[in-house]
Nucleic acid binder design. Structure first.
Lengths: 255, 255
DNA sequence: GGTCAATTTGTATTAGATACAATATTTATT
DNA sequence: AATAAATATTGTATCTAATACAAATTGACC
């Protein structure tokens, strides 16, 4: 599907003689899509099937791909996400470029690239994006038929290329960005959420423990956190009130 | 000097027929080096001489260049800075990749690239770095003989490519990074500085006005801001005490 | 109805931010 | 030498937010 119009970027060493030794370099995008299951952060990974030493292997990678000719970086990230996971209208944030020489030192990956991507690879520079999404029914439906699945960030196996490192940096980026503007965290919560869910999210993102009572009071005084008259049901304790994040009020409140 | 071994990255459109239409794409790094003159932020720019419509023109650009084959991104940024400005041992921080198609829509720039860089250019993706340095005698000496000069960020003329945009994003990155970790700001100050200089820096970086008395008390209570027994001289008012930033104490104080 | 486990409210303490007056010190001026 | 001007530094009082922790509330379940 997205194999047409693929960008193949070649590296030409400017030797003094005229023969152009073409070492291939590719430019790609990779997306770290993060979700929150109410308890843990999870990252969206793509199943990969490859071959090494004559026998098939299965592992995982970030959703990503080479960039099309004449395609903007941001557009490429969006496209890749739709193609590999079915997700649309996701806010993506570029956070770092990875271009180390030994990104492609694993023969497994080189072999996979040459087969699956029909690319003879010398070096790939990738531009990494992060996205925060609500794990939910809608999302699961969109992902149907794709090779995508959620994996808790605490239980990520060794991935293709330097994708473990990329996820690590994505999480660091999330922490630092959220510490400046915690409102981005609401993208990880369902439309209706309890203060306890919000607190759990803060705790898992920042790696801290917070006092429930103080956190509660601090949050409900925020004008853009509007209380609904709906409560949890089926819990074996006092049911918590649902709240929602009002983006309009939020935008007005930060002039 | 650095023209040998230049990376030429080609884009090959995967057309159904076999002829490889090679649109060239280049990968580069650009460095936004920021300094503080005690009053304003300044950025280090490189004089550029080009030709358009038969006559020569002069303008400016960020220090940057194409990446060498087998060269790490960070290494390329360091190398470029040394080659173009004479600066060594500078801490560089990657902050964003710029890959928009119309980075090279200005004929001036295309023409310059083809002449000065001997490159037939279709598209350049650049990885942008930021550095904070102390403007001073040592720096000025290192820069001698180069085409580099300091320009106040408030008085930057239109630059080559999207370099104005890159500087804007570098400043935004500085603000957001410094708001998380203000200690990076000491890289912009001389080894000995007064609290007033420090306050001026805060004010110009964050665009705020701060109360001198309160700022003073807040700062001198920091363990890693050590008072020297040296004072300003030649000022027509009470001479301010000099302080220095102690990196060791700072590192210990943030376990 | 009583118990459990959480949510939610209340209150008191502490630490930090802010406002602004007062004092100190240096050079320039008379 | 005394005084003015300008900024550095100290002092103090107030207001606000962070923290600690006790107490009350509520829904499910037995």
């Amino acid at each position: 599907m997205f194999r047409r119009n693929l960008l193949h970027i070649f590296v030409q060493t400017n030797t003094t003689d005229m023969e152009n030794e073409l070492a291939k370099i590719h430019l790609s995008v990779d997306c770290t899509v993060l979700g929150f299951d109410g308890n843990r952060l999870e990252v969206l990974l793509i199943r990969r099937t490859g071959e090494e030493g004559g026998r098939e292997f299965h592992d995982m990678k970030l959703p990503g791909s080479l960039i099309l000719d004449n395609e903007e970086l941001d557009d490429a990230a969006r496209r890749v996400l739709t193609e590999l996971t079915g997700l649309k209208n996701i806010t993506l944030q570029q956070f770092k470029a990875f271009g180390s020489m030994d990104r492609t030192k694993n023969p497994k990956d080189v072999h996979w690239l040459e087969h699956a991507q029909k690319a003879h690879v010398h070096r790939i520079v990738t531009v990494a994006y992060m996205a925060l999404v609500k794990i939910g029914r809608a999302m699961t439906r969109e992902m149907e038929g794709s090779e995508a699945l959620w994996v808790p960030v605490g239980a990520i196996p060794p991935l293709a290329f330097d994708h473990n490192e990329i996820i690590g940096e994505a999480l660091a980026h999330l922490r630092s960005f959220a510490s400046m503007d915690p409102s981005i965290l609401y993208a990880l919560l369902p439309r209706k959420f309890t203060v306890t869910q919000l607190r759990n999210l803060y705790e898992v993102v920042f790696g801290t423990k917070l006092d429930p009572a103080n956190f509660y009071k601090k949050m409900i005084q925020l004008p853009y956190l509007v209380a609904l008259d709906e409560h949890e049901r089926g819990v074996a304790h006092r049911a918590a009130r649902y709240f929602r994040f009002d983006k309009n009020i939020y935008n007005k409140s930060r002039l």
